[in-house]
C-alpha cells in the first residue's frame, strides 16, 4: 500500500528551487498537515469510542512483593544475587568496607587498565579504579567521544536501584552513574549496588524511580536470541557485566 501512496510525495519540484527552500516549505507544509492530521485523528478516536462504557482498572496484583522476593533485606539481597547470576553475570556479595579491594581485584583480573569513572562516584571507589598496576581512572570531563569510550577497557558505576525478583539494575544517569553512553560503549561494566538500594519487585522500583531522568534497566550482559532462539551473551552492549553487592 505504501508504495502507491508514496509516489504522491512531491519530489519533482526540486529542480526549480534550492533544496533548502524545498525543505523549508515542505517542513512547514508537514507541520500544517500534521495539525490537520492531529485534529482528524482525534476526531476519529472520539467518534470510534463514543458511547463506549468507561473501564475501571483493578490492581489486585502484588504491590509490595511478599517473600521470597520480598521479606527481610537479607533475603532480597540473596535473591537479587541469585537472579543476576542467572543471566550469567559475575556476582560478588561483600561487606561495604571491602568495596575498594573488590573493585581493584576485579579490574586486575579482567586486565582492565584504562577505565572510565563517572562524576560523583564515591572517592574511595574512584581511587580503587586506578589502584591496580597499570590502572588508570579516566574521568568523563570534558565528555569523552564515542570513539574514545570505545577505546577504553571498561566502566565502574554505582546505580539507582536493584530489583531482586528480576535481577535488574537500574541506572538513572545520576551521580556515580554518568550519562548513558558510559555504561554502553565500553565492553566491560562493573556495577556496585548497595544492599539498601535493592527493592523486592518491579512495582517498588517503579515507585522509587524518577521518570523524568533517562533510565537504563540492565538485566545481565548484552544478549540475543535471534539465532534459533538460542541465547548468546554479548552483542553490542558490554559483553561482561560484573555486579558487586555491598552489604
Amino acid at each position: 500500500m505504501t508504495r502507491s501512496q508514496g509516489s504522491r510525495v512531491p519530489q519533482g519540484s526540486q529542480t526549480s528551487q534550492s533544496s533548502q527552500e524545498v525543505q523549508d516549505s515542505q517542513n512547514s507544509q508537514d507541520s500544517q498537515n500534521s495539525q490537520g492530521s492531529r485534529d482528524r485523528i482525534l476526531a476519529r478516536i472520539r467518534a470510534a469510542v463514543a458511547g463506549a462504557p468507561e473501564v475501571p482498572v483493578t490492581r489486585s496484583y502484588r504491590h509490595r512483593v511478599p517473600p521470597p522476593a520480598g521479606g527481610t533485606p537479607g533475603e532480597a539481597v540473596e535473591l537479587f544475587a541469585e537472579r543476576v547470576a542467572d543471566y550469567r553475570a559475575v556476582v560478588h556479595v561483600v561487606e561495604s568496607a571491602r568495596a575498594a579491594e573488590v573493585i581493584s581485584g576485579a579490574l586486575a583480573r579482567r586486565g582492565a587498565r584504562r577505565v572510565v569513572v563517572p562524576g560523583g562516584l564515591p572517592e574511595e571507589w574512584a581511587r580503587a579504579v586506578g589502584a591496580h598496576p597499570g590502572g588508570e581512572a579516566v574521568p568523563d570531563d570534558p565528555p569523552l567521544s564515542a570513539a574514545e569510550l570505545d577505546a577504553l577497557d571498561g566502566v565502574v558505576t554505582g546505580c539507582a536501584a536493584g530489583i531482586a525478583e528480576t535481577g535488574t539494575i537500574v541506572l538513572d544517569a545520576g551521580p556515580g552513574q554518568g550519562r548513558r553512553a558510559l555504561t554502553l560503549v565500553p565492553d566491560y561494566h562493573l556495577c556496585l549496588v548497595r544492599a539498601g538500594q535493592i527493592v523486592p519487585g518491579v512495582p517498588e522500583a517503579i515507585a522509587a524511580l524518577d521518570p523524568l531522568r533517562p533510565l537504563t534497566w540492565i538485566s545481565g550482559p548484552s544478549a540475543t536470541s535471534d539465532i534459533e532462539l538460542d541465547r548468546v551473551e554479548g552483542v553490542h552492549g558490554p559483553r561482561t557485566l560484573e555486579v558487586v553487592i555491598l552489604r
Partner: peptide
Amino acid sequence: EVFLQLLPRSSTGERMNPYTST
C-alpha cells in the same frame, strides 16, 4: 509496573530483558 512484568516474560521468556531504556 504491570507491563514490565508481562512483556519480557511473555516475549523472550525471561524475567526481564537485558536492556530497557526510558
